[in-house]
C-alpha cells in the first residue's frame, strides 16, 4: 500500500523500454513490474532490475536445503534503532570492533517523500558462496543440510581471502578467537537449541527482519517472496553468488 503511494508520487520512466521477453520472464517468476523509477524508490538499492530478477527468479525454481534458511528484509521499516545489532553482539559475543550484522544509511536526496533509508546487511548465506570456494583450508564451509555458511574456527589461518571474496563485507577477523567471524544465523547460540528466530530477527521492534525457511510454502519468508504485489530484490546480484537475503518494501 505504502509502496503504491510512493510510486504514485515518483516519476515513472515508463515501461515501454522493457522488452516483452523480459516481461514474460518476470511474470513467469510470479513478479509484477510496476514501473522503473530513478528517484531512488524502486531500483536504486541494487544495480539493475534485470539482474535482480534473474537472480531471485532462479530461487523460485529450487531451494536446495532443508530447511532453507533465509531472511526477507522490509527495508523501509528499518528505523536504525540497532537493537538487532546489540542483540547479535550479545548473543554471539561479537566484540565492539567488529560486527556480524549492521545497518547502513542511504540518503535519497531526489526522493519526494522519505529522503532516508536504513539498510540492514548481514551474511547472505549464498548458494554459491565465494568465501568457501577461496578458503585454502575449508575453515569456512556451507552446511550441506541447512545451507548456513559456517566457520570451523580451529582451521582458520587468517589469510582473509574470504573477506576479499565476500561481496557483502560480512566477515571480520575476531582477535580473541584468532579466526574470521561471521553471521551463522545464530546456529550455535539459538537455532540448534530449538529457537525459531535469529537474535536480530527477534530483537527487531519494527518487523524488518523476517527469518524463516524458504523451502516451506507456509513460511512467512516463502510467502513474502512468492507474491506479485511487491518487488523483491537482492544486493549485488552481479556478483553471482545467489544470496539468500532478500529485500522488499512495504
Amino acid at each position: 500500500m505504502i509502496l503504491k503511494k510512493e510510486l504514485d508520487m515518483s516519476r515513472n520512466e515508463g515501461l515501454e523500454n522493457l522488452g516483452s521477453e523480459e516481461r514474460r520472464h518476470f511474470l513467469k517468476m510470479g513478479l509484477v513490474v510496476t514501473g522503473l523509477f530513478a528517484g531512488g524508490t524502486l531500483l536504486s538499492l541494487s544495480s539493475g532490475a534485470r539482474r535482480v530478477f534473474a537472480s531471485s527468479g532462479e530461487f523460485a525454481e529450487k531451494y536446495p536445503y532443508k530447511p532453507h534458511y533465509s531472511m526477507l528484509i522490509h527495508v523501509d521499516r528499518c528505523i536504525d534503532c540497532e537493537r538487532c545489532k546489540k542483540a547479535c553482539a550479545k548473543t554471539n559475543h561479537v566484540p565492539d570492533y567488529g560486527y556480524r550484522t549492521t545497518i547502513l544509511e542511504r540518503d535519497v536526496s531526489g526522493a519526494l517523500a522519505g529522503k532516508r533509508e536504513f539498510v540492514p546487511v548481514l551474511c547472505n548465506h549464498c548458494n554459491l558462496p565465494q568465501c568457501t570456494r577461496v578458503c585454502p583450508t575449508r575453515a569456512t564451509y556451507k552446511d550441506p543440510v541447512n545451507g548456513i555458511v559456517q566457520m570451523n574456527k580451529s582451521k582458520c589461518i587468517g589469510c582473509l581471502t574470504c573477506q576479499m571474496g565476500c561481496p557483502y563485507n560480512a566477515r571480520y577477523f575476531n582477535e580473541e578467537q584468532m579466526a574470521v567471524d561471521k553471521c551463522s544465523f545464530c546456529w550455535e547460540s539459538r537455532l540448534s537449541k530449538g529457537e525459531a528466530l535469529t537474535a536480530c530477527a527477534e530483537a527487531c521492534p519494527a518487523g524488518v527482519r523476517i527469518f524463516g525457511d524458504l523451502s516451506d510454502p507456509n513460511d512467512k519468508v516463502y510467502r513474502g517472496i512468492h507474491q506479485i504485489e511487491k518487488t523483491v530484490w537482492v544486493l549485488r546480484p552481479e556478483a553471482g553468488t545467489k544470496p539468500n537475503i532478500f529485500y522488499t518494501r512495504g
Binding site: 503511494k5 523501509d76 528499518c78 536504525d80 534503532c81 545497518i103 522519505g114 529522503k115 532516508r116
Partner: peptide
C-alpha cells in the same frame, strides 16, 4: 500529515542520526 505507519525513517533518525 503523512501517517505514522509510513515513511519511518523520516522521523526516526536512528542511532546514527
Amino acid at each position: 500529515a503523512f501517517a505514522s505507519d509510513t515513511r519511518c525513517a523520516t522521523c526516526h533518525e536512528g542511532v546514527k542520526g
